[in-house]
């Protein structure tokens, strides 16, 4: 996926290094190689590659990772603008 890059500086992903327990699960579940385990702790090595799927934050046992996950689909986002977040949509994904 290194050939594909999307807009930089937009992801909501954040890592609290002090809270990290070094389990490495985030590096396992991330499909983009955003995180790496260095000296026993997770580090963000390619933050702009994050697609905010939320897998790392959901599986982080210490809450060191936070992200606002969502669906990156234009039709869905328009519906959230019109009807508000959390609406039931069809035709996405």
């Amino acid at each position: 996926m290194e050939t594909f890059r999307y807009l930089p500086g937009v992801t909501t992903l954040a890592l609290d290094s002090e809270a990290c327990v070094g389990c490495g699960l985030c590096t396992t579940v991330c499909p983009q190689g955003v995180l790496e385990l260095r000296e026993g702790l997770a580090v963000l090595i390619d933050r702009d590659a994050c697609m905010e799927c939320g897998a790392c934050a959901l599986n982080c046992p210490s809450g060191a990772l936070t992200v606002t996950p969502g669906v990156g689909c234009a039709a869905y986002i328009i519906q959230t603008w019109l009807k508000g977040r959390g609406v039931k949509t069809s035709g996405c994904c």
């Binding site: 594909f4 999307y6 697609m51 234009a74 039709a75 986002i77 994904c93």
Partner: peptide
């Protein structure tokens, strides 16, 4: 332009924050 932008929902590398900014 719109249908190309809508293809973001099918790609495995676009973030919702990025798509919203682009939109």
């Amino acid at each position: 332009s719109y249908t190309g932008m809508n293809f973001t929902g099918s790609t495995p590398y676009t973030s919702p924050s990025g798509v919203e900014k682009e939109m």
